[in-house]
Amino acid sequence: MRRVPVPILAYFAVMAALPLFMGASGLFYDAFQAIFVFSLVGLGLNVVTGFTGLLNLGMAAFMAIGAYTFAILTSDIYPFQIGFWWGILATVAIGAVAGFLLGAPTLGLSGDYLAIVTMGFGEITLDVLKNLDAVTKGTQGINPLPRPTFGSWSLDLQEERGWYWLLLGFVLLAVLAVRRLERSRSGRAWLSIREDALASQCMGIPPKLTKMIAFATGSALAALGGALFAALLSSTGEPASYDFQVSILALCIVIVGGMGSVAGTLVGAVVMVGMNSLVLVKLADWAGAAGVGNASNVLASPNNWKYLIFGLALILVVRLKPDGLLPPRLEGSAS
C-alpha cells in the first residue's frame, strides 16, 4: 500500500546530479536557485490552496516576512546577529506565527472573501516594509547577510554549486515534511475541507483550527523560501521584490503543476520560474546577439513579450491540462 513516490525520487536524483554536467557558474545556477526558492514557496501554497482549498493571494507577504525576519536577526547592521542556522529556525517559527495570526480572525471567511483579505495582507506588508524604513532600510534593503556555516567552513556567495545543493536540500526537507503531513491525520483533515467543507465539519473536524494549521504550515515554508532568497542575494532587496506578481507566480506554480500534488508543485516551479529566468533571458540574449534588440521599438525586445508569453502559457495549460501537469494520484489506486 505504501506507494513509492517515483516522480519525486526521480526529480531529486536528476536535480542533484545536474550541476555535475554544468560549469561552476552561469545562468543555470541563477535560474535553478530561483526555482528551488519558489519550490519552497510553492510547497507552502500547495498546503494552503492545493490541500486545503483556501485561495491565498498573499504568499509574497510571507516570503517578505521571512526575508526581513532573517535579515534583522542575522545582519551585522543590527545587534542580534544570531547566525545563519538560528536565523533560519527563527524565520520558520515567525512565519508560522504570522500565518496563524492572519488566519485566526479571517479563516472563517468563505473563498473569495479570504482571497481578497490575503491580497490585502500582501499590500499592507509591502507598505509596512516601505514605510518603516528606520527598521527595514526602505528600498535599500537590509544587507549584508551572513553565509551558512558548517563547523568552521562557510559557504561563499560565489560558490554556486554549494548554494544549489543547499537549496535543494531545503526543498528535500520541505517535501519530506509536507508528504508526511499529507499522509497523516493532519493532511486528511485538510483534504476533507477542500473536498467538502460542511461534510468535513459534520464529521467533527474543527474547520478553523485545521485551516489555521494549514495556513501556518504554508506560511512557514514561504518564510523559509524568503529567508533563503535573501541569504542567496545577501540582501533582502527592496520591498517591491515581494509584490503581488510574486504571489501570482506562486499560485501559478501550484495550479500549473497540479493542485494538491507535491511532485506537481516541483515541476510547476521548474516550468514557471524556468520560463521566467531561463527561457526569456536566453531569448533576450539571442535577440541581442542577432542585433534585433532595438531600444526604440517596443516590439523588438523579447523582454517586452514576457507577460504575453506568460499569460498565453497559463491559458494554454489550464485549457489543455486542467488538472495541472502532474495531478495528484490517489493513494493506492495507482499500482
Binding site: R185, R188, A189, S192, A199
Partner: peptide, 27 residues
C-alpha cells in the same frame, strides 16, 4: 456528500478523526 477524491478508507478515517490523538508534531 463524500470526499470524492479520497479513498474509501480515507473517508472513514476522516470520520474517525475525533477519536484520534496524534497532533501536528507527532505526524
Amino acid at each position: 456528500r463524500l470526499f470524492t477524491d479520497l479513498s474509501l478508507v480515507e473517508n472513514v478515517l476522516v470520520g474517525m478523526d475525533s477519536r484520534m490523538r496524534s497532533g501536528f508534531w507527532t505526524n
